[in-house]
């Protein structure tokens, strides 16, 4: 049902992507296809280029033409908000909520700016939609709470909920489990699996290995801006270079 079908055209195609900052090469000739409905894990040591790759996909960084193709369209010239409207949503490694707003208001920003009918839909309709997402995320009770009062796990869920409120085709979760306790990790992981079940393609960046292993159909490992391994979770884990990058000196 959700397994990435190799016969379909890729939802996201990264083609020979290189990103330099001054003399430093953060991403070096990275190419990968993400298939529709795929659960894709992205791993690699700190500074290996994971977040840079996410920033290139979501549009925070500009890249060369045709290096990022989404749904058959070259999106490298599109600003982030247009990419969001095309169906790419993300969460942030360090949560970036709209601090002056309540939880539901955070979601309503997404509803306001990504539904093509934002001038016709009433605020009530937006509110209902946002509320439905919050219920799905188990945050309904916190809808009217200020985000500054949320716990770490609630903040993570809120970010995922806000990303979901843009009704994405592709959801990128950037270390949504960092700093959470064991049971909280399971909670967020179950949420992501549930979303994947709704035929949303998900790229998950994570340091918590057992979570990535449980979640992903395919895993890619970056090191120093290069792909050092890609494939089935068990294959990647067995890869000598991956083990070296993670465990070696």
């Amino acid at each position: 049902m959700t397994a990435g079908d190799t016969t379909l055209a890729p939802l996201l195609r990264i083609g020979a992507l290189t990103k330099r900052f001054g003399g430093f090469t953060a991403l070096d000739n990275v190419s990968v296809d993400i298939r529709p409905g795929e659960r894709f894990g992205l791993i690699g040591p700190n500074g290996s280029g994971k977040t840079t790759l996410i920033n290139c996909i979501s549009g925070a960084f500009r890249t060369d033409p045709a290096t990022v193709v989404f749904n058959g369209e070259d999106i490298t010239r599109l600003p982030p908000h247009v990419r969001t409207r095309r169906g790419i949503a993300r969460s942030f490694q360090i949560p970036r909520p709209f601090r002056s707003m309540t939880v539901i208001e955070n979601l309503m920003v997404a509803a306001d700016f990504t539904s093509a009918t934002h001038l016709r839909l009433t605020a009530e309709a937006h509110r209902d939609q946002a509320m439905a997402i919050l219920r799905e995320m188990g945050l309904a009770a916190k809808a009217e709470a200020r985000v500054t009062g949320l716990s770490q796990v609630e903040l993570r869920k809120m970010e995922l909920a806000r990303a979901m409120a843009t009704r994405p085709k592709l959801l990128i979760s950037d270390e949504a489990m960092a700093g959470l306790s064991g049971s909280e990790v399971d909670e967020v992981l179950d949420l992501l699996l549930k979303l994947a079940g709704e035929s949303i393609t998900i790229i998950m960046i994570e340091h918590i290995m057992q979570a990535v292993m449980r979640f992903s159909e395919r895993i890619m490992c970056l090191d120093a801006g290069r792909i050092i391994a890609i494939g089935q979770p068990s294959e990647v884990m067995a890869n000598a270079r991956v083990q070296e990058a993670y465990l070696g000196t």
Binding site: G59, P79, H81, R85, R96, F98, F113, T114
Partner: peptide, 16 residues
């Protein structure tokens, strides 16, 4: 208000 709170997050939530 969203971009005042966080400009990058606002962009990534669809705010032009």
């Amino acid at each position: 208000q969203a971009l005042r709170d966080d400009e990058l997050a606002a962009e990534c939530t669809g705010v032009p």
